[in-house]
Design a protein around this nucleic acid. Structure first.
Lengths: 133, 133
DNA sequence: GCGCAAGGTTTACATCTGTAATCGATGTGA
DNA sequence: TCACATCGATTACAGATGTAAACCTTGCGC
């Protein structure tokens, strides 16, 4: 059994796509927004139309990623799981898939390919100290 | 400029899918294999037929991810970029997308969500010491 | 020589994704 | 009250992906 099997990023099997993620971000930033409001936040940046946002919102509700709460004749959408849960799931998925489950390998890789700046290293060091007094 | 800009995971735009990745893995493990050989390595594990492997190999050659070298009447396939390049690209992509480009944030997140075992922490600590004597 | 096995190539086809347009109901200002 | 603006829901459609079957060529054993 896989060490990451018990903390799914999200409902088992249900995955969030890139486009959907953009919508989720807007709602993690500020929950309970209408389709139009979400569009204001993302349409310009991604060159989307309101229709596209509506579609994505629907799909996310179907997937159980968003709750839609009726407010008059429209809906307010709210994420059903925290950004952290998603981010954590995706991270673990990557570590699992590409580094055989070893997070240390990931860090090693980032360090070796110089994806880690001196500053990053400082931060990580501080973090370690904090984690184990 | 990003320190990682010079090691593209792969030709820009060209992405490798999950299924294709399985095939790449087999060939990273041992390059210059035939379709049948690759199938021996992955078909059982993924429940694929040889036909599926053939399709994936073709697509990978088209994408420029694999070279096919004729060997008699069949082909030997070989990755055109190292696993490290791919893994690095995917890692950076994730860090970029989910952690605003800060690798340290990723590590912090893994640590906070206890995705890092005590052992991982040891490894990382050792790594840090090694990176900055 | 001939049919079969093995190879690659072509075609297939259902889903998933990205990106909308259209439809039908409804609230609203004139 | 009536046209219009809004909303969510339904439908659309192309390209990517997963998964293969069908097809065509060719070397090989009989």
């Amino acid at each position: 059994m896989n060490p990451s099997d018990d903390i799914p990023a999200f409902g088992p099997g249900e995955r969030i796509t890139e486009a959907e993620y953009a919508v989720m971000e807007a709602l993690w930033d500020r929950p309970r927004q209408t389709a139009a409001e979400v569009c204001e936040e993302v349409c310009a940046a991604r060159g989307w139309s309101l229709a596209t946002v509506k579609t994505l919102l629907s799909r996310l509700v179907q997937k159980g990623a968003l709750a839609s709460e009726p407010d008059g004749r429209r809906f307010l959408y709210t994420p059903l799981f925290a950004r952290e849960a998603y981010v954590g799931g995706e991270s673990r998925r990557l570590v699992e898939r590409l580094f055989g489950g070893s997070a240390a390998s990931l860090v090693a890789h980032l360090a070796e390919t110089e994806a880690l700046t001196a500053n990053d290293l400082d931060d990580i060091e501080a973090l370690l100290k904090e984690l184990r007094p």
